[in-house]
Structures are given as C-alpha cells and as structure tokens.
C-alpha cells in the first residue's frame, strides 16, 4: 500500500514541477512570438550567441519602468558577449490597455529598446517558465541547441536607484557564466507587478 502511494506520488511529480515553472538546470522551451517589428521570433533565430537573457516585462508596471534603462544597458553590454536580452510581455491588454501591441511599439521607440520585445500570447511562456511578476528574469545558457536555465529572479537589489544597488544579481550571474565559474546566487526575489494573465478559455 505504502509503495503504491509512493509510486503515485512519483508519477505526479513531473506535473507538480510543471505547474511551478522552471528551476535552475531545467531546459527552457523555445517559442515563436510576434516581435514589435511584426515578425515572429524564436530563440533559435539568435546566432553567434552563448545564451539569452529572457525578461518578462511590460509597459504599465512602474517597477518594470524603473528597470528599462538598466535592461537596455545590460543588453548593450552582454549582447556582444553572447547574451542578448529578449523581452516578453505576458500581460493581457484587455486588463491593462497600456500593454497592447501598439503601445509596446510606442514604448520601445520612446526608450530606444535595443532588444526584441515580444507579445507572449495567452501568457503561455510566462506560465511555462513560471514567471509571476514583471520584471522577472530567466538567464539561459546554450548547451548544444538546448537552452538551460542558469539564473532566475531580479536584476539587482535596488529598484529605486541603480547607483545604490550593491547586489547585481543578474550581472554577477552573467559574469560567472562568461568566466566559466559557478553562479553564487542562482535566484532572487524582488517586488514587482503581478502578471495580468490572459483569461483561459
């Protein structure tokens, strides 16, 4: 009897894992999502890269806005080193009109985004990855043709003032990957906006 319960639990384990999204070491799913230039984009489209910085973010959230300049700076610095930023907006514009497709194009122009900004249709990738808030970062490293999750969480530890941040979680993780060293802190939490999930039909 005990054994059968154990077997049942073990059988359910992958599903429990699925519901909670990715953990460090998991293989990240690729996607094909509409970019603000109207074209579809996948991780597979990236070339000469060693990985990718996938960031769930959006237009409306004040905390996401506080990090826009930092995300641009990270992309500029690490794209050349093989880790470009790919931003995904998982929010339903029916709930948050500021997060519509036209508004995404507009925001990208205003801020001069140097990275793709994709519509995460039906919040599907946010669900798959396990993102809960904006901004929410998944640092991926390419292993063969796979992308493996190496770091999950915040960009740094001071949303208000980048110059006062004394823990640069994401940059530290990137530096470790580039140096071929182990990442000291593989996950972190920060305040952010809840994802405005698309209603599932």
């Amino acid at each position: 009897m005990k054994n059968s319960i154990l077997v049942l639990l073990l059988a359910l384990l992958p599903f429990i894992g699925m519901a909670e999204g990715y953990e460090i070491g998991d293989q990240a799913s690729d996607f094909s999502l509409k970019n603000i230039d109207g074209k579809m984009m996948s991780l597979a489209d990236l070339s000469d890269n060693k990985g990718a910085i996938v960031i769930f973010t959006c237009n409306h959230c004040p905390y996401a806005k506080l990090y826009e300049d930092r995300i641009i700076a990270l992309d500029k610095k690490y794209k050349g080193l093989g880790y470009p930023v790919v931003a995904l907006n998982p929010n339903d514009p029916k709930i948050e009109p500021a997060d519509g497709y036209q508004e995404m194009i507009q925001r990208s122009k205003e801020k001069g985004f140097t990275f793709p900004y994709l519509v995460d249709k039906d919040s599907k990738m946010a669900k798959t990855y396990g993102a809960t808030r904006t901004p929410h970062v998944y640092l991926l490293q390419k292993e063969g043709t796979d992308y493996v999750v190496k770091y999950i969480g915040a960009i740094d530890n001071n949303a208000k003032d980048a110059t006062q941040a004394d823990k640069l979680y994401l940059a530290d993780a990137l530096e470790a990957l580039i140096a071929g060293k182990a990442i000291t802190k593989t996950s972190s939490k920060a305040i952010g906006c809840t994802i405005k999930w698309h209603e599932t039909k």
Partner: peptide
C-alpha cells in the same frame, strides 16, 4: 527598505515578490 530579496523570502517562502 530597499534590499528586499531576503525580506520577501522571510515574510513567506511562497511569496515571489509580486503585489498584492
């Protein structure tokens, strides 16, 4: 407070940091 990572976890393990 600004350094919120340890605080969020201490308030509750389940809290990702999203509000409310």
């Amino acid at each position: 407070e600004t350094d919120l990572d340890p605080i969020i976890t201490k308030v509750n393990e389940q809290w990702s940091g999203a509000i409310p």
